[in-house]
């Protein structure tokens, strides 16, 4: 299943990340995963949370530039080679990975890896065909 991810544009300035997380906290939004892609001038904060639409509206109201897009999350066993298995699968099927980050599935005490791939539908169907377990929600 596809997972919604919100990206937020941040300048490399003191306190920007603190502001975003504070706004989410004050509105009782629970973060399930977060990562930052940074360049020398700006960063892109990518988050997965329990109330995507509300979080996006809050960011918009506070004049942040945001974007929502779909990513894939896959359960990962805690043993050597589990990520390599997925990457090999993607490589063989020429699925282009733009970025990835890992997170934790709270209730299951397991890890998950979040992928942004060029073609989300195709990525999902390849995982399914090969018996990989995708995360339906956090």
């Amino acid at each position: 299943m596809k997972i919604s991810q919100i990206s937020v544009f941040l300048e490399n300035k003191n306190g920007r990340l603190a502001e975003v997380t504070r706004i989410l906290a004050e509105n009782n939004i629970s973060l399930k995963a977060a990562s930052i892609a940074d360049t020398s001038d700006f960063g892109i904060l990518r988050i997965i949370c329990d109330q995507t639409e509300k979080a996006r509206q809050l960011m918009h109201d506070h004049l942040f530039t945001t974007r929502v897009n779909d990513v894939i999350a896959v359960r990962l066993d805690d043993r050597p080679g589990s990520l390599a298995a997925i990457m090999t699968l993607f490589e063989q099927n020429r699925v282009n990975v733009e970025y990835l980050y890992t997170t934790h599935i709270g209730q299951e005490q397991r890890s998950a890896v979040v992928f942004k791939v060029e073609d989300v539908e195709r990525g999902l169907s390849i995982l399914r065909q090969n018996g990989m377990e995708t995360v339906k929600g956090f």
């Binding site: 892609a37 700006f42 892109i44 945001t66 974007r67």
Partner: peptide, 15 residues
């Protein structure tokens, strides 16, 4: 200013 119509979750697109 970065506007929503060209903001992307990928740095390469902004670059």
């Amino acid at each position: 200013e970065v506007e929503e119509n060209f903001f992307s979750d990928e740095t390469k697109e902004l670059e």
